[in-house]
């Protein structure tokens, strides 16, 4: 230690704080419990609105940047790499490969799920990208028809998939209009 005599001790030595057990906290006098009210109506805007409408029709739409040729899924009205407007809409076949996949045993609030769900990133077949490159067009979604063994063994990664659409009458212009992505047979 290079410390001089009389120098105060470092700030980690006696960290202050009053720890509470769960019950102790709930029995504290003056504890305030408050249910918040924070509701919104998000403007999806030009790009996402058209994308959602496309989902309703069973289409996966993207926008193409006129300068670099990247096709964006989900679409944006601008190219984030060229900072220019993207005007041209492209319909993608919807097929692609699994980039990564995991098995979730818990829900949003960390509650255990009855049935695990498999989710992952789907790298979509889209023009404008180098194969195997760092960037790609893709979506985050559920995967079905993929088994936990496929995920754990690594077989799932690289598997070719396509969207499984909900029946047209159930589609609402929502990301859930795609039920999941499922492996392409054969």
């Amino acid at each position: 230690m290079s410390s001089r005599s009389g120098r105060p001790q470092p700030g980690w030595v006696n960290p202050p704080g009053h720890y509470l057990k769960r019950d102790e906290m709930y029995s504290l006098v003056g504890l305030v419990e408050y249910p918040p009210r924070a509701k919104y109506l998000f403007s999806a805007g030009q790009a996402q609105s058209r994308f959602l409408m496309g989902l309703k029709e069973g289409k996966i739409l993207g926008t193409r940047c006129p300068r670099c040729g990247r096709v964006y899924v989900p679409p944006r009205m601008y190219c984030e790499y060229c900072h220019t407007h993207t005007l041209e809409w492209v319909e993608l076949p919807g097929t692609g490969v699994i980039h990564t996949a995991v098995i979730s045993y818990i829900g949003t609030f960390r509650e255990r799920r009855k049935e695990p769900v498999i989710v992952g990133v789907i790298q979509l077949d889209a023009p404008g990208y180098t194969p195997g490159g760092y960037e790609f067009a893709g979506l985050f979604h559920r995967l079905c028809g993929v088994t936990p063994e496929d995920v754990m063994s690594g077989r799932a990664i690289g598997m070719r998939v396509k969207p499984r659409w909900r029946p047209p009458e159930e589609r609402r212009g929502d990301i859930n209009d795609i039920e999941c992505f499922e492996p392409i047979e054969g």
């Binding site: 996949a101 995991v102 979730s104 818990i106 949003t108 989710v119 990133v121 979604h141 559920r142 990301i175």
Partner: peptide, 15 residues
């Protein structure tokens, strides 16, 4: 899609 934040880490970890 009802995500839990751990998903995104798990996906990255898997990759």
């Amino acid at each position: 899609l009802g995500p839990n934040l751990i998903w995104i880490f798990a996906m990255e970890m898997r990759r």
